[in-house]
Design a binder for these strands. Structure first.
Length: 557
DNA sequence: GCCGTTTTCGGCCCGACTGTTTTCAGTCG
């Protein structure tokens, strides 16, 4: 089992214990262990071989025994026993927004419902509103939540599917008879949610490719095998398709399979793909078709073909353009690492500056900073900055935007900081007008530099709050406030569409990791992908700028 | 269930909002 799989089982154990109303601290212990393992740099199987599972922070005797059992047998009896008591379908009910373990318990105990399908039926038959403590609103909320889940059913985030796809691609490339391999489809275009993993390989030896895939440890099943295509399921129930072509066909098919369908139809109009055989790069294929190379992230037929014809394609931002990360949490709030550890990790990434932006006092659960702790933290940052000049740590905060658009710190406090990210963490359900007004109010605040995760969406879990984007962009432009592209794969907020709109309005963006652990810093690659899908160039993104220019921008108002 | 110790038990992340109630339980960040 992989680190991720072990972590997943521990998380499910925590959920099951919660539904059983077990000791909350025990539940948290399982979640803590899961999070640590999820972010572990070492392979957990290697640790097991060295008998070092017990050294993992948060893993004591009980969890250690369960992990070892999983690694040795692939199973966990404790988990299986819990599943006998609370079926998987009941566990899935927890993913409905607003439905927690108590509600799940009430539904399961009173109606004996064991699956989402049965739940939908019961809700539509108005059985939910009759249950103790539940009512019409909860019933409505369940129906809406189930609709949302159905929509994203079977779709995996970029952050989950990309590493799995990269591993499979590299595995295939290790075969002598495979000369080229590439991730294709919506994953290569960088869509935040993908239905499957598609990989194109060049090989004349289909049986060898088939054998190689069937012995891949990450394969759950192979459902179909034709002379040019093998498909089935990978870990986490993700569908995969490996498309096999001869070397001569590789580059035309790279274009064809990367899509999107609309882009492909436009590009390949009246062209027989066989006439493109033998070309040696994707660029050559595009050129042959009369276009310059079009980056994969743009291939959605949303203007890129016209832009290509007019030679007006953007020079898209790349990871190496980033000079820093402007939204990072440390152990001063809910981050896992000390500022000096984060500094060291960011130095390794080659950053010139970073901003420590811990939560503020309105978020007490995260250990949010009050005025005193903020000023104590500033002293620590000053000391670290005076130690070396290789990297500059900016003093910042992720302040809360209160219900009325006010910020939860006074101007004199915010004035002391180099950078202020302002985010919403409460009152998600304000109506569109009030929510929009609230954000605009925050944008107008003197010391605000960046609005964090503007829409609050959580992919596969929660829609963003209701906002009217145009007046927000107008206000941001007028007040020199940047919008964050939050790189966490569950967020990717703002999305590519808004990013592109922001650019049209002259609004700058900041691509941030929102890291809570040094292992999260690399998630910024997904933010860059998202920015590329939004047609952004380095100039549009303030953390590609040189330090002095950035500081000047942040000082402003 | 984990951790740490003035070592084997006591502490561990809290407060606001929502929907159900009619004073509070449940959910969320």
């Amino acid at each position: 089992m992989t680190n991720r799989e072990v972590a997943q089982v521990l998380l499910k154990i925590a959920d099951l214990l919660e539904i059983k109303d077990d000791n909350p601290f025990k539940i948290r212990a399982y979640r803590n262990a899961a999070n640590t393992i999820f972010r572990l740099e070492e392979n957990i199987n290697d640790l097991h071989r060295l008998d070092r599972i017990g050294n993992i922070p948060g893993v004591g005797k009980a969890v250690k025994a369960k992990i070892e059992e999983m690694l040795e047998t692939g199973k966990c009896q404790f988990y299986q026993r819990l599943l006998d008591e609370v079926p998987e379908g009941v566990l899935q009910m927890l993913s409905i927004p607003g439905v927690g373990h108590k509600t799940v318990r009430t539904i399961y105990d009173n109606l004996g419902i064991r699956s989402l399908k049965e739940l939908e039926k019961a809700a539509k038959e108005h059985q939910i509103r009759e249950l103790p403590g539940l009512g019409r609103k909860t019933e409505h909320n369940i129906i809406k939540g189930l609709e949302m889940l159905a929509k994203s059913a079977g779709k995996a985030t970029l952050g989950l599917s990309m590493p799995i796809a990269e591993e499979l691609k590299d595995y295939l490339l290790s075969l002598d008879t495979v000369s080229h391999a590439s991730i294709v489809g919506s994953l290569r275009r960088g869509k935040p949610l993908v239905g499957d993993i598609d990989i194109l390989v060049a090989s004349d030896d289909f049986p060898a490719v088939y054998n190689k895939i069937s012995s891949y440890p990450g394969i759950v099943s192979i459902d179909r095998a034709q002379p040019d295509c093998i498909s089935g399921k990978l870990l986490y129930n993700i569908d995969f398709e490996v498309i096999v072509v001869g070397l001569d066909d590789y580059y035309p098919y790279l274009l064809w399979t990367t899509g999107s369908k609309a882009h492909r139809q436009e590009i390949f109009q009246n062209v027989d793909i066989k006439s493109l055989q033998g070309l040696l790069s994707e660029e050559q294929v595009y050129n042959q078709l009369g276009y310059p190379f079009i980056p994969a992230e743009l291939r959605e037929n949303t203007g890129e073909i016209e832009a290509a014809k007019d030679d007006k394609l953007p020079i898209l931002i790349e990871c190496q353009d980033l000079r820093g990360d402007l939204h990072i949490h440390s152990s001063w709030s809910d981050g896992a690492m000390k500022i000096e550890e984060l500094k060291a990790a960011c130095l390794e990434l080659g950053y010139e500056y970073i901003a420590v932006t811990d939560h503020s006092k309105s978020l007490p659960i995260s250990g949010g900073l009050n005025e005193e702790r903020l000023s104590a933290q500033a002293k620590v940052v000053d000391a670290l900055n005076s130690e070396s000049e290789e990297i500059t740590i900016l003093k910042g905060i992720e302040a809360d935007i209160l219900k009325d658009g006010q910020i939860d710190f006074d101007d004199e406090v915010l004035n002391q900081l180099d950078i202020v990210v302002a985010s919403i963490h409460s009152n998600f359900k304000l109506d569109k007008e009030k929510q929009t007004e609230r954000i605009i109010q925050a944008i107008k605040e003197k010391n605000i530099n960046i609005i964090g995760h503007l829409t609050g969406r959580l992919l596969n879990r929660r829609k963003g709050y209701e906002i009217d984007i145009e007046p927000i962009l107008e206000a941001a432009e007028k007040n020199r406030v940047a919008l964050e592209i939050n790189s966490h794969p569950d967020r990717l907020d703002i999305d590519a569409e808004i990013a592109r709109q922001a650019k049209e309005y002259g609004v700058k963006t900041a691509i941030n990791s929102d890291a809570h652990h040094k292992a999260d810093l690399h998630l910024i690659r997904y933010g860059v992908t998202n920015a590329r899908r939004g047609w952004l160039e380095p100039e549009d993104v303030i953390n590609t700028w040189e330090k002095d220019r950035l500081l000047d921008y942040l000082r402003k108002k």
